[in-house]
Design a protein around this nucleic acid. Structure first.
Lengths: 254, 254
DNA sequence: GGAAACTCCGTATCATGTAAAGTGTTTTAT
DNA sequence: ATAAAACACTTTACATGATACGGAGTTTCC
């Protein structure tokens, strides 16, 4: 359903392309560009304007060919997104040997994911269930695997543990992005937005509810003033989830 | 950036509309429909085909008017989405007095959110930071507020706690939806998809990595066979997050 | 010297949200 | 009673999207 989803078209062909297996074509004129150049241009565009503003026309213009010429480099927009996906995954580091223990490893990866998402917010618009299994994606999968290998859980539980964390991370990244974009697009801070919406709400809400909601928004506005509020929120949640996993391990040990 | 986002246009006008304050227009012909009928039709369409397939033309056809006539009921597609949002929020229950303790209340609300998301998957495509503050949304906010009020945390911490849970929930709902849709759209189960992709991957991956990944996918395939796998995953994660919050409360108490 | 394989482009199709302007209907003011 | 204002609804038009199709020019192989 999602128009921005990866995972469309023939999985086999996609895979071959991701791993760089493409005979360049012996006859005919040489290509003016490389596939990498097209992908890089597309990434730059997506970084700047988001994936929903990414069009074949714009990519074509950016690299200086006609729109239809792009289809000699990439069979469809969906496969271009696959390539973009694996391309930017290469920008993140994996935890090395100095990071010891599953908790530290997972925290490291979560933070890498956070900065990746700041550089390339459009990643959140791509489907990641059945992801394009390119080289970088496999590297990530391996890193995750070694991180959760020593939690002392059964294979099923280990998978579940990894999933909780992933689900939290993607949820948190998305809400952080939403907050950023709401600010940018409206030109209003959350506080300013509140001050516009508040009086209108007061007219409709019954006084008791209104007071209760006032309290909630008070605590929230408190936080909003801190400069690193969004990072702090992510970090707090991350620690809670890791705490939860730790508690599960202890509980299971008894 | 997100084209499907709510939160576009004048927040004040939106709010008035959400609370049903609209003079019906005294002169001229009566409207053939009510705004509610338009919203219901739009919800039905979104349920069936997703929000990215929802167009003003289709809604118009569904209710039997010309596309442009819709704009006499609703000023824009964005505001229609706002109305749809608050409309379907009315389908969920809040925890009543019989549900005692913050943990049970939060679990109740999380599960309500889960079933809501199964009925209306397109909800996940709408922005919820600065949501349209309609009557049902405010009801939800109040319910959440009373749920987290007695955790024994400071206002800031209480807000953070609610945020972790929300972030986990939206992440989990989204991954569950992705899994469902991948299956429906491709016509392949995860297992079948694996069996197609696997041999191709084997060609490119070095043998050691390949064996490691094999193990991971083994444990995951185990789970996939269970019939309620997706619900189980959600429930497991939910309990871990709640565990994490509990651990935080204990830690803070000392 | 073909012929095949290839790159690149112009055009065309169908869908989208909604602006603009026109037509007809009902209520209100005079 | 009549004119004017306000409204519901429609047709047409535009810009932007992915990509199918067919053609023109280029390079390589037999």
């Amino acid at each position: 359903m999602n128009p921005d989803s990866t995972d469309v078209g023939d999985p086999q062909r996609s895979l071959e392309r991701l791993w760089g297996r493409q005979e360049p074509g012996r006859r005919g004129p040489k290509q003016r560009l490389s596939t990498a150049e097209v992908v890089d241009a597309a990434v730059a565009l997506a970084d700047a304007e988001g994936v929903q503003a990414l069009s074949m026309r714009k990519v074509a213009e950016a690299v200086g060919v006609s729109p239809m010429s792009l289809y000699t480099y990439v069979p469809s927009k969906a496969e271009l997104l696959d390539l973009m996906f694996d391309r930017v995954l290469g920008d993140t580091a994996d935890p090395d040997e100095s990071v010891i223990g599953w908790r530290a490893k997972l925290a490291f990866m979560a933070r890498e994911r956070w900065t990746l998402s700041e550089r390339h917010p459009w990643l959140l618009d791509l489907a990641t269930h059945r992801p394009p299994l390119g080289p970088n994606m496999m590297r990530k999968a391996l890193a995750m695997l070694t991180a959760v290998a020593n939690m002392g859980l059964s294979p099923e539980e280990t998978g579940l543990a990894a999933d909780v964390l992933q689900d939290y991370i993607t949820g948190a990244l998305r809400s952080a992005r939403e907050a950023r974009e709401a600010e940018q697009m409206s030109g209003l801070s959350d506080e300013q937005w509140f001050s516009i919406v508040w009086p209108v709400l007061e007219k409709h809400l019954d006084p008791k509810s209104f007071r209760t909601v006032s309290q909630l928004s008070e605590g929230r506005r408190e936080r909003t003033r801190s400069p690193n509020e969004r990072t702090a929120r992510f970090e707090f949640g991350l620690q809670r989830v890791l705490d939860g996993l730790e508690a599960f391990i202890s509980k299971r040990a008894t």
